[in-house]
C-alpha cells in the first residue's frame, strides 16, 4: 500500500500568502531601523551602521532564499521612495550593496550551517556590501584612486557588521515575539 506525502498546503504553518505578509512586515522593520540610523553620530560622511540589515539577518534563518531576496528588494525600493533617492546613484549603491550582502549572508548561512553565528553571517554581509559599494564608487564616481580608501571602509564595515550581528544574536535568543515566529515557520 502506498501513501502520498502530505501536500504543502495541508501542513501546519505558513503558506505563500502568509510568508509574503511576514516579508512585508519585515520590510517595514527594515525601513524603521534605517530611520533609527539618523539617531547615531557618523564618524565619516558616507558611513552607515547598517541597522536596516537587522531584519534581513533575522529572516535568513526563517524563510527560503527567494523570500530573503524579495525582502531586500522591498527594503531598497521602500527606502528609495521614502527618501526620494530612487532615481539617483544612492539607489544604485543601496541596491548593489544590499543584494551583495544578502547573497553573501545566504551563502555563509548555507555553508556554515550551525557552525556560524549571526555575528559571522552579519560580518560576511557587511564585507560584501562594502566591497561592492567601493567597486561602484571606483567605477562610477571617484576613479581608480579611490581604492586607497578600501581598507578603511572594509574595516568600518567589519566593525558595524559585528555590532549589528551581536544585537541580532541577542534578539534572536531573547525575543519572545521572534520565538513565536520561529515556531510558526518551523512548522512548514
Amino acid at each position: 500500500m502506498m501513501f502520498d506525502a502530505p501536500r504543502r498546503e495541508e501542513r501546519a504553518g505558513p503558506g505563500k500568502a502568509e510568508t509574503l505578509e511576514f516579508i512585508a512586515f519585515m520590510g517595514a522593520l527594515c525601513l524603521f531601523f534605517s530611520t533609527l540610523e539618523y539617531l547615531f553620530p557618523k564618524p565619516f560622511p558616507f558611513f552607515r551602521l547598517g541597522l536596516a540589515n537587522l531584519p534581513v539577518l533575522l529572516t535568513i534563518k526563517l524563510v527560503r532564499a527567494r523570500y530573503v531576496l524579495l525582502l531586500v528588494l522591498l527594503k531598497v525600493l521602500g527606502h528609495g521612495l521614502i527618501n526620494g533617492t530612487l532615481a539617483s546613484y544612492v539607489f544604485l549603491f543601496s541596491f548593489g550593496g544590499s543584494f551583495a550582502s544578502a547573497v553573501a549572508m545566504l551563502a555563509a548561512y548555507r555553508l556554515g550551517g550551525r557552525n556560524i553565528s549571526l555575528v559571522g553571517i552579519s560580518v560576511f554581509g557587511a564585507i560584501a556590501s562594502n566591497v561592492v559599494q567601493i567597486y561602484l564608487s571606483v567605477t562610477f564616481i571617484f576613479g581608480l584612486t579611490a581604492w586607497v580608501i578600501a581598507p578603511l571602509f572594509v574595516g568600518l564595515g567589519v566593525f558595524s557588521g559585528v555590532l549589528v550581528g551581536l544585537f541580532a544574536q541577542q534578539f534572536y535568543e531573547q525575543s519572545r515575539w521572534l520565538g513565536g515566529i520561529r515556531a510558526y515557520f518551523a512548522a512548514s
Partner: peptide, 11 residues
C-alpha cells in the same frame, strides 16, 4: 507589496 510595507511602516 510596497503598499503593504508602507502600511506596516506607519504602524
Amino acid at each position: 507589496m510596497i503598499g503593504r510595507v508602507f502600511y506596516y511602516f506607519e504602524r
